[in-house]
């Protein structure tokens, strides 16, 4: 079984639209939406949820104000400016300390050092994840709670569950919709994957971000392909992006033209290749054939 991760570096380059089309073209793949922070794939593939589970990425501190003697030790040891002296009073003190759950890093140092045992340190509810069916096959996806931490761990979880589904159903491919950037969720979505496709655009920003994301995949030793979306927006820059990719050891696997159908398909809740045949849809099919060709050459086992 192989894992293909679609990334963009810069957001908004058409990554999710491409994943939806790949799902339609692959026919027998498991989908994993690892853009858990702002998941959009479900808007097109319309999953029917079969199983729903809570996700806890760590614990969080809470001062039990009834037990607080306002000694201030928690405030002293907290490195994350998460402790405030504005909690409700109790019989002994007029004001107590309070932990801001959004600023809390979940390190538990305050709870450890609280001599009164007045700080509760319990697993936080950070989100929810789903196993679903779509018209293209099974899908694992998630929703990280708003303003929550540890998206990387939720990404790891979604990937692991998608692999389990693939194994159980004897499907060979997991297609992963990654998140923008190069930080924790992105690293969690690519570590140990078989192939990365970077979707970029012919802009100076796209060029800059491709460089950073390609360095990241190189750092983790993962084979990487690139395709330029909306290439005709600036043909000169499209060529420059592809040239830069070559220098970085990243092969170009096709170009996709600028086409309103991309947005129209999204509005119609369809994958581009379901909605249209010509234009960008034809280009996407071309890109998919390049990607699946590369996947088939990777051999049955990934080289670690």
């Amino acid at each position: 079984m192989k894992e293909l991760v679609v990334l963009s570096g810069k957001g908004g380059t058409g990554k999710t639209s491409l994943v939806a089309s790949f799902a339609a073209l692959a026919g027998d793949a498991v989908l994993a939406d690892c853009d858990v922070d702002a998941a959009d794939l479900h808007l097109v593939v319309e999953p029917k949820i079969i199983r729903r589970s809570r996700f806890s990425g760590g614990s969080r501190a809470r001062v039990m104000s009834g037990h607080c003697i306002a000694c201030g030790k928690c405030d002293e040891v907290c490195r994350f400016d998460a402790v405030f002296y504005d909690g409700p009073g109790n019989g002994r003190v007029a004001k107590t300390f309070r932990v801001d759950p959004i600023a809390c890093e979940g390190c538990g140092v305050c709870a450890w050092f609280c001599a009164e045992g007045a700080i509760e340190f319990a697993p936080a509810d950070n989100g929810v994840w789903f196993v679903s069916e779509t018209r293209f096959g099974p899908m694992v996806h998630a929703k990280l709670g708003i303003a929550e931490e540890n998206s990387g761990k939720l990404v790891s979880l979604v990937r692991a569950e998608a692999k389990k589904v693939a194994e159980a159903r004897k499907l060979d491919l997991v297609i992963i919709d990654g998140s923008p950037g190069i930080g924790c969720p992105v690293i969690a979505s690519i570590a140990g994957a078989d192939l990365v496709l970077v979707v970029t655009e012919p802009t100076l920003s796209g060029l800059h971000d491709l460089g950073r994301v390609a360095e990241l995949t190189k750092h983790f030793g993962i084979q990487t392909l690139v395709c330029v979306n909306k290439w005709d927006l600036n043909a000169e820059l499209a060529a420059e992006v592809e040239g830069r990719a070559r220098q970085l050891g990243v092969e170009t696997v096709g170009r996709i033209c600028y086409d309103q159908a991309m947005t129209e398909a999204q509005i119609n809740r369809q994958a581009l290749v379901e909605y249209a045949n010509a234009g960008a849809a034809a280009d996407v099919k071309e890109v998919w054939s390049g990607v699946s060709d590369r996947l088939s050459k990777l051999g049955p086992f990934a080289i670690l």
Binding site: G11, D37, A38, I102, A103, L144, I146, A147, E148, E149, S151, S179, P180, G181, G183
Partner: peptide
């Protein structure tokens, strides 16, 4: 700010 709604964004907009 960065995109999304999780910790890096919170750090940037707070």
């Amino acid at each position: 700010a960065p995109p999304g709604t999780s910790c890096p964004v919170i750090e940037a907009v707070s």
